[in-house]
Design a protein around this nucleic acid. Sequence first.
DNA 1: TTGTATGCGTTATCAC
DNA 2: GTGATAACGCATACAA
Lengths: 372, 372
Amino acid sequence: MQTAQSVLVHFPCANDCSGSVSRPEPTSTDVAQLAGVSQSAVSRAFTEGASISEAKRARVIEAAEQLGYRPNLIARSLITRRTGIIGLAVGDLSNPFYSQLIYKLSEKLQQRNFHLLLFTVPDRANSDDLLEDVINYRLDALVLTSTEVSSHLGARLQERGIPVVLINRTTEDTASSSVASDNEFGASEVARFLVKQGHRRLAYVAGIQNTSTNIERERGFLRALASVAGVTVQHISGDYDVHKSLSVARELFDGENAGPEAIFCANDMMALSLMDALRYNLNLRVPEDVSVVGYDNIEPAAFSAYQLTTYSQPIDEMVDAAVELIVERVSSPGSAPRQIRLRGELVVRASVGVRHPSSADTSAHPSSAASA
Amino acid sequence: MQTAQSVLVHFPCANDCSGSVSRPEPTSTDVAQLAGVSQSAVSRAFTEGASISEAKRARVIEAAEQLGYRPNLIARSLITRRTGIIGLAVGDLSNPFYSQLIYKLSEKLQQRNFHLLLFTVPDRANSDDLLEDVINYRLDALVLTSTEVSSHLGARLQERGIPVVLINRTTEDTASSSVASDNEFGASEVARFLVKQGHRRLAYVAGIQNTSTNIERERGFLRALASVAGVTVQHISGDYDVHKSLSVARELFDGENAGPEAIFCANDMMALSLMDALRYNLNLRVPEDVSVVGYDNIEPAAFSAYQLTTYSQPIDEMVDAAVELIVERVSSPGSAPRQIRLRGELVVRASVGVRHPSSADTSAHPSSAASA
DNA sequence: TTGTATGCGTTATCAC
DNA sequence: GTGATAACGCATACAA
């Protein structure tokens, strides 16, 4: 023990000898020499379930600790052809849904000895750089959460045998695994709930047009409403951009026609900022004057200032499923990709009010005085 | 071109041949063979500033594209002893300050061909696992943003020549580089501002006790107030935990003595949730009944529902500085660690009101009726 | 400039 | 169970 410490402390030139710091990285050969065994024995001592006697393993471990030896995973991966590193492409981290997702994903993967290599993909970025890096590092798999990654990237990686797992995103390409919530069903639940609460003039604030999340939520919402008599739906694009909420709010209540009684936003972030715009810029009350619903159930949705009604994504189950998909495809390269859908649930909070259709149409829409 | 495609498409067994998928990973030797050059020539063709003729390089590049060859960075790092991978230990990602920080850090590092390997460090976790992994992967450096990492970890890595960079965190250990805002100065600015606005009964909601951020902010706040006559400061611990805000609020306004006129929270997340508790549980108005100030200037602080006055962290400058520190220490191992302090600025919003000391003491504190 | 030979640190394949 | 030896894919010192 003491020996180990002194070995570690007494490395040459403790201060700033610029240029060449010759610190000794102990290798398995060094350990073998000290323990008086072969280098292969050292390797086996650090390999789970390898064929080695307990006595010898103990000797090796002790020598290793003395030298501060740790097996070099990089060198190991060169021959095992598995790095234990999984790429993660993320877009907007200002949405807590994604930051929570990657935190939990990383946590669960670490438990299974995998780690995430982060790739930030700016909106509209050329994803070719990402492709290159993923290949160059020989990553075990790539997880895509970004909405802005071209789908041909997935195809290219598939060709090279690198599994691709999509989270909160789907694609027609069946070569990629995916985990997503049942957006269409969730949105239809929102629609039914709003109708049941007596709302008739509805609005949908869309996310980025060509994303699977937006397409599915929009479809679920509109289809569920199509069969209900007397319901109108205003469609407006929000692009998952919280900074567009004010203009969205103004467009919804532009004074020409009566504003909506209830608004469904394609995600919570837009819903929260829309609530702010409605309340503090248009001087409308939520839910008395207008109801608001989101999707995701991010933490801020539960804040007292918002009390946002929303459809939750089962984030823990989604992460668990993703981990299974990853491990499955990495450990058995022949396994086929799978697409998984999980259902969340409607979380009813105070941002949705009740309408009485008989009297609501006139009293519901007060003077929508705009302000700065 | 067409040849390249057909090569890529025609790899054996396109479907699920379980078990052994024998896909051909082209190596530099393969490329060399096709291009009719030596393997080292291929290596040189992909090495910036290597000594090779343009003609030969062109031949190599073309052959490489035909085969879909990409240099294996893992194998390369075995020789260069640099992986281009930097460890990032993160704690609580539900705080947007950190999610924003790591996004920008990743972005900037990618521009310089570095990537971040994510390590989630659960609160109070044993950081030994982290230590092991960082060493095992031979990471170029480790960035610590988590508040919960023991400082002996830094020392251990330092011993092995792995640079450690702390962000939003400091330590006595001068072996680690660090970037942090001038917490003490910032907090003193908050104190001076509150006094100037006429507040006299103040309160400090502390973060986790032994963290450098909390220690410094607390010290700055209290020292600046120590010299001001007639000022009282109530101290209460919040542990950077948003779920404790309700009990914090109740303790501050427990009815025995007059509640504070202004509250400084050690970070924005606590300030926001405290505002909620004050408004919706204690039925107090902010800022009319009580003022609230935070620290960080996270995005939600600007939301209309909160309009939180706060002291900003210069996050872009902090990231830039961190990148410099990292690159500097990685590229020249002899360079000495540096500690950097950056100043933010007070961001005044509506969560702080003005008191008139002459009449404030009685009228300022209405019936603090508690509720559910 | 170019090719040959060697080594990076490890696991895998053999014989024993 | 154990030890030699050959890969893994690449960069580099050296000779040409």
